[in-house]
Design a binder for these strands. Structure first.
Length: 152
DNA sequence: GCCAACGTTGGC
DNA sequence: GCCAACGTTGGC
């Protein structure tokens, strides 16, 4: 079973539709400037991993679909590195897979059995890239109206 | 290496 | 637009 992640994005910056419309449905997940998220991309996230695409800072915030990692961590192209200031930031590439039939709102997730431990729902959580257990991913994908077996 | 000040995130 | 939470910065 592949590993599963939740990637947050503000849709007016970069939405799942923007990802779908990208060449080959693929885009770099660049511009992340948080060390914890950077370390996940550098050390943990691998090719073929499943990404739950989450829209934040909109009403209602919601998981809206799925993508997959198609390239492992490499230097963020927006990292202004130089010999004196070597590469610090990392990006991965993700490819669009599908929209959910129904967005899975954060409120719905709070109500859902099996998501009690979901990192996203923890108070004060701001991490833009978060681990999701396969069980949690299954629950979210099913709530989105899709068959988890097709993606996990 | 502590910690106050400041900046950012993101739900509401 | 508010503000809680938390990450980062920089003076000491």
């Amino acid at each position: 079973m592949v590993r599963t992640w939740l990637f947050k994005s503000e849709p007016y910056e970069f939405s799942i539709d923007d990802l779908k419309a990208s060449p080959r449905g693929t885009s770099g997940w660049e511009g992340v400037r948080n060390y914890q998220a950077r370390n996940l991309m550098r050390d943990e996230i691998g090719k073929g991993d499943v990404v739950i695409f989450y829209h934040s800072s909109v009403r209602p915030p919601a998981a809206v679909g799925l993508a997959e990692v198609v390239r492992e961590g490499y230097p963020d192209r927006t990292d202004g590195s130089s010999p004196e200031d070597p590469v610090r930031w990392i990006q991965v590439d993700v490819r669009y897979r599908t929209h959910f039939e129904e967005p899975v709102t954060i409120d719905a997730m709070r109500e859902m059995k099996g998501l009690e431990e979901l990192a996203l729902l923890r108070r004060g959580n701001r991490l833009s890239i978060q681990p999701v257990t396969p069980k949690e991913a299954k629950t979210i994908i099913r709530a989105g109206g899709l068959d988890p077996a097709r993606f996990l």
